[in-house]
Nucleic acid binder design. Structure first.
Lengths: 237, 237
DNA sequence: AAGCCCCCCATCATTTTCGGGGAGTTGCTT
DNA sequence: AAGCAACTCCCCGAAAATGATGGGGGGCTT
């Protein structure tokens, strides 16, 4: 497997379009002998795109019904770090209806294993393998491939980020230490008076820093300035 | 290496304390034949802890001087998804003084390779290997071990999350879709009137959502609520 | 030495937000 | 059928933030 694995990773890294990634993913699916491989990403502007082997009908249905809101896989991945076996999720209520009533018919496997992936600026993605199999079989399969799947997930996401994302993230804005201080205090929930006090400067001075930080960050108001600073990692809460 | 790798991963998974992780990490360092292995985590409440092989003096110095603010490794990792070779970072200005003037003396290797890791709730961590070596040697070493390092990073972080506190992850704050909407608008820099307008709800309704989101997030004011939501990845800007 | 950025301080009128109340509908879950 | 969470709408006075202006001193870089 090891040789094959690095082969797939090379292939991933040579892909220059999402279609290219799709081909690699299909190759991977066939190699693993399973039914579905899905890579699904939500980027920082809230736009999402996916590279998958589901039927277009099911994808349309999923989007139209806004199943993302009730999908236990998505919810589960979002709050976990380690990959998650679908069997361990909570499939009650609406989720059950979605799964038993529609997803299975649409060709989604009864078993699944999803790797959560997080990138800079709040990017979130999932790399999923799905199949029709018995619990024990699936347990064995996933157990043997955890490491490989984590690596695939990483490299697919890395490539997808390179393909999709403009590298305007590199235009790092720099704030002065004091500007970072004031934004940090605000992000911690202090009001101007408290914050200025705890930095031992006048409220007016405090305001000056907020203004200049706001200007540098191209923000309309304090809240946006704080949000941007937090999102860019300039301010750690 | 493959056999060794899974051995280390098993060892990681058997660790029950951060000290246990430390032992595994030292074993890993010796096995790789390098000088330092560092795992450093920051969660969304700003608490940080580390498992590392640096001298306590250097760690104290780093914390006391708040070097996290100017450390290009931290900054660079926060903006990237893929592991980063220290050589590719911007080591000018204060960072240079820190590195040449103190870090090297403190035993930090001249070469380094850091894997960024992101978990739920805005958790952020780095897994770093550092060594004294020439560029070509280091290039070769890291090239050969990228995949392994990514995997180590993953499993160390997974274990550290389990050890440090699975409890606060369970009380994962979940915001309703509308609450996320209002915070998103605010994070984008609109004021209440504009935001309410663009969501096609009354300003007062808008306020109600902000209030309930603020309550759920345990925030003192709107700015903090937005900052927390952004930091935890609930709101994408 | 000039220019630039960082650090600090101030006023006033205007706009925006906050905090404290209260009320009604839908829709899912149990 | 009841409960609960989410969604929608409203008032008002007090408190806070903003915008538009000023000012001065210190330190690094060119």
């Amino acid at each position: 497997m090891q040789a094959k694995l690095s082969g797939f990773i090379s292939a991933i890294q040579q892909a220059t379009t999402l279609d290219g990634l799709q081909s690699v993913i299909i190759g991977l699916r066939d190699h693993l002998g399973i039914e579905h491989v899905i890579y699904h990403s939500v980027n920082s502007t809230g736009q999402q795109y996916a590279v998958l082997t589901y039927s277009p009908e099911w994808v349309d249905r999923y989007l139209a019904e806004d199943y993302a809101r009730i999908d236990p896989v998505l919810q589960g991945c979002f709050r976990r770090f380690h990959p998650v076996n679908w069997k361990t999720l909570d499939w009650s209520g609406r989720a059950q209806r979605m799964f038993l009533g529609e997803a299975l018919d649409a060709g989604v496997g009864n078993q699944g294993y999803s790797v959560p992936i997080r990138g800079p600026n709040g990017q979130f993605a999932m790399f999923t393998v799905s199949h029709r199999a018995r619990d024990a079989t699936w347990e064995k399969f996933t157990g043997e491939h955890v490491a490989d799947l984590i690596l695939f997930a990483h490299f697919v996401n890395q490539r997808a980020l390179e393909i999709e994302g403009g590298h305007d993230l590199n235009v790092m804005r720099s704030l002065s230490p004091r500007e970072i201080d004031v934004l940090t205090m605000l992000a911690m929930g202090l009001n101007r008076a408290q914050a200025a006090d705890s930095l031992a400067i006048s409220e007016h001075t405090f305001r000056t820093y907020v203004e200049s930080a706001r200007f540098k960050l191209g923000a309309n108001n304090t809240t946006q300035a704080v949000a941007r600073a937090v999102a860019e990692g300039l301010v750690l809460i």
